[in-house]
Amino acid sequence: MKIGKGVEWVAHACAILALLPPKRALSKESLAEFLGVPAPYLAKQLQALSRSGIVLTHRGAKGGYRLAKSADLISLWDITASVEGTAPSFRCTEVRQNGPCGASEKECAGPCHIASAFARAEAQYRDSLGKVLLTDLVAAGTNEATDSRKQDIGLWLEQHATSVA
Rank of each mutant, 00 (worst) to 15 (best):
L42P: 06
L42A: 08
A18Q: 02
L26T: 03
D72V: 07
I114N: 00
A103L: 15
S148V: 14
I114P: 03
T93A: 14
I3D: 00
L133P: 00
P21W: 03
A109C: 10
K5M: 10
A109M: 12
L67F: 06
V37W: 01
S104P: 11
P22R: 13
A123I: 04
W9L: 08
Q47C: 09
S50H: 11
V138G: 02
W77T: 02
G64F: 04
A165F: 14
E33K: 12
L67Y: 04
Q97Y: 07
C14Y: 06
G154A: 13
P38N: 13
T80Q: 02
A81N: 04
E144H: 15
D147F: 15
Y41R: 15
Y65W: 07
E29A: 13
Y41Q: 13
K44H: 12
L26W: 01
K2H: 10
K106D: 01
A13C: 10
Q47H: 12
K131I: 03
A25T: 06
F34R: 06
S70W: 15
L76H: 01
A25F: 05
S75F: 12
E105M: 08
E94M: 11
A68R: 12
G141D: 00
S50W: 10
G64R: 04
S30G: 03
P21R: 09
L20T: 01
G4V: 12
V7T: 05
D127K: 14
S70L: 11
P22G: 05
K28I: 08
H58K: 09
A103T: 10
W156D: 00
A165P: 09
F118D: 00
K131Y: 06
R120W: 04
L129F: 09
L155R: 13
E107K: 14
Y41E: 12
Y65G: 02
A140L: 14
A13E: 07
V10K: 02
Q124F: 08
L133I: 01
A18T: 04
A117H: 05
A87K: 12
Q45R: 10
I16P: 01
L19Q: 06
R149G: 03
H113G: 03
K5T: 08
A15Y: 03
G6N: 11
L46Q: 02
E29N: 11
K69I: 08
R24P: 01
G130H: 08
G4R: 12
A145Q: 13
P40Y: 12
G130Q: 04
D78A: 02
K44W: 12
E144Y: 15
W9A: 10
C112T: 10
E33Q: 11
D72M: 04
A13H: 07
R120T: 06
S50G: 01
G99L: 13
V138F: 08
T93N: 10
K62D: 01
G36M: 13
T86A: 09
G141E: 00
H160D: 00
P111N: 07
L129I: 11
E105L: 12
D72A: 08
I54Q: 06
A117G: 02
E8G: 11
S89L: 09
P111H: 08
A121F: 04
R59A: 09
K150N: 10
K131N: 07
A18E: 00
